[in-house]
Design a protein around this nucleic acid. Structure first.
Lengths: 213, 213
DNA sequence: CTCCAAATTTTTCCAGTGGAAAGATAGGCT
DNA sequence: AGCCTATCTTTCCACTGGAAAAATTTGGAG
C-alpha cells in the first residue's frame, strides 16, 4: 500500500501537515483547499473523503492541536507557574495549531474529536489555578486571571504586537511576566525571578511607537 | 445629493457598517464583498472605488477601530486600572473592530490611516504601565503583563472559552481579575483587591457611540 | 486464486467569489 | 455652456468550495 499513483495511502496526514504549513505562512484562512491538494499531488476533491469539507479539515487541526496542548500542559507537572510557561511555549512552537484552536468559528467545536481534548486541557488549567489560592471562592478568578495572562501574552506575541518580540526569548519573557503578576500568590513566592532575567540589556525605553515590526 | 439610483452618496460609511455587522455575525472573514454590496444595494464592484479591495475595507475597519480604541483608553484617565477595564470594555462592546485590529494578516498594518491611531493606543498603555512600578526597569514588563492580562481576558471572552461568560458582566469580571493580579502593585494600594468588585462611583464615562449595530 | 465490498481517488459540473478593465452617469466648477 | 472628476455599472476572467457520479485500488472471504 505504499506508493502507486492512485491511492495516496497517507493523504490524511499529508493534508494536515500541508494545512499546518499553509496556516503558518498565511494564517488560518489564507489558503485554499485546492492549493493544498495540489501540493499533495492529488485531485482537489480527494481531501473531502477524509475531512468532509474545509471546516472538517480545520476541525481535525483543532482536535490534534488540543490533544498536543493537553499533553504539553500535563507535562508541566501541575505547578501553576510551569503550566503558564508551557502554555506560552506551546503557542509559540505550535502557532498553527494555536491560531485555529481559539477561533471556534473556524471549525466545529462540538466535534467528538475536539471536545474531550479541550476538556483535558481545561482540567489542567483549573488544577493549576487551584494551587494559587487556599480560598476556593477565589479559585475561579485566579484561574481565569492566570489563563488570561498567559493567553494574552501568547496572542500578542503571535500577532507581532510586541515590538521587542524579536529580541527576547518568549519563554523567558513569559516567566518574567508571570513572576511579576502572580509571584505574590505563589506558595512561598516573591517575585524573585524578575531580577535575574530582565536585568541587563533591557533598556526600558517605553514603546510609543505602534508596535508590530 | 440624496437622489435616485446611481450615486449612492454614502457608500463608504454604509459599507463599513455592513462590514462591521457581517463581522459580528460571521467573524472577520466569514462574509463576501459581493454580499455586502448587495445589502447596500449597489453593484459588487462599487466598493472598490472607496477601499481598493477587500483588504482595503478591512484596513479601514482597523483604522477606525484603533481610533475609537485610543479614544476610549485615553478617556480612562491614565489610571492603569481603569485603562485595563476600558480595554476589555472596548473589546466586548466593539468586538467587530477588535477582532480585526489584532489580526494584522487581515489588513495592511502599515497603512497611514492605521499606524498613528495604533501608536496612540500604545502610548496610553505604556503610560498606564509606568504608574505600576517606580522602577523603570520593570516598566516594560509590568506594561506587557497588564496588557497581556486585559487582552487575554478579552480574547477568551470573545471566543466563548469562558464557560461562565454568560452569567457575569465581563467588565465586573475584568475588574476582579485585574484586582487580583495587579492589586499588589497599585500606587498606595495594598491587596484590598477582591474585597468587592464594583464599588460605588464606579461607572466611568465612556462614549457609547454606535457603529456596532 | 478469484471476486466482491469497502475505501480511496478522479472527473465533471455548478454557483459564488475577488478583482481588472472599460464604459456610463452625475454633480460641481469655470 | 463645456469639461472634469468622483462615483458607480457592465462585462469579463481565473479561482474557489462543494456535490455527484464514475473509476481504481485494496484487503479479505470464499
Amino acid at each position: 500500500m505504499e506508493h502507486g499513483t492512485y491511492h495516496h495511502g497517507n493523504l490524511r496526514r499529508v493534508m494536515l501537515d500541508a494545512a499546518l504549513q499553509a496556516i503558518g505562512e498565511s494564517g488560518p484562512t489564507g489558503w485554499s483547499l485546492r492549493e493544498l491538494a495540489r501540493r499533495a499531488g492529488v485531485s482537489h476533491t480527494a481531501p473531502a473523503h477524509h475531512f468532509g469539507d474545509k471546516t472538517g479539515l480545520l476541525t481535525a487541526v483543532a482536535a490534534e492541536g488540543f490533544d498536543l496542548f493537553a499533553t504539553a500542559l500535563e507535562a508541566a507537572g501541575g505547578d501553576f507557574f510551569e503550566v503558564g510557561v508551557a502554555y506560552v511555549r506551546f503557542a509559540v512552537r505550535h502557532r498553527s495549531y494555536f491560531q485555529v484552536m481559539f477561533r471556534p468559528e473556524l471549525y466545529r467545536p462540538a466535534d467528538p474529536a475536539v471536545a474531550p481534548a479541550r476538556a483535558r486541557a481545561g482540567a489542567v488549567l483549573a488544577g493549576g489555578g487551584r494551587t494559587l489560592s487556599p480560598d476556593p471562592a477565589r479559585d475561579r478568578v485566579a484561574t481565569v486571571a492566570a489563563w488570561s495572562t498567559a493567553h494574552g501574552f501568547a496572542e500578542l506575541w503571535l500577532s507581532g504586537a510586541l515590538a521587542d518580540a524579536a529580541e527576547t526569548d518568549p519563554e523567558t519573557y513569559a516567566r518574567d511576566i508571570l513572576a511579576l503578576t502572580f509571584g505574590h500568590l505563589r506558595r512561598g513566592g516573591g517575585s524573585e525571578s524578575l531580577d535575574r532575567s530582565v536585568g541587563v540589556g533591557d533598556t526600558p525605553e517605553h514603546f510609543d511607537d505602534g508596535n508590530i515590526p
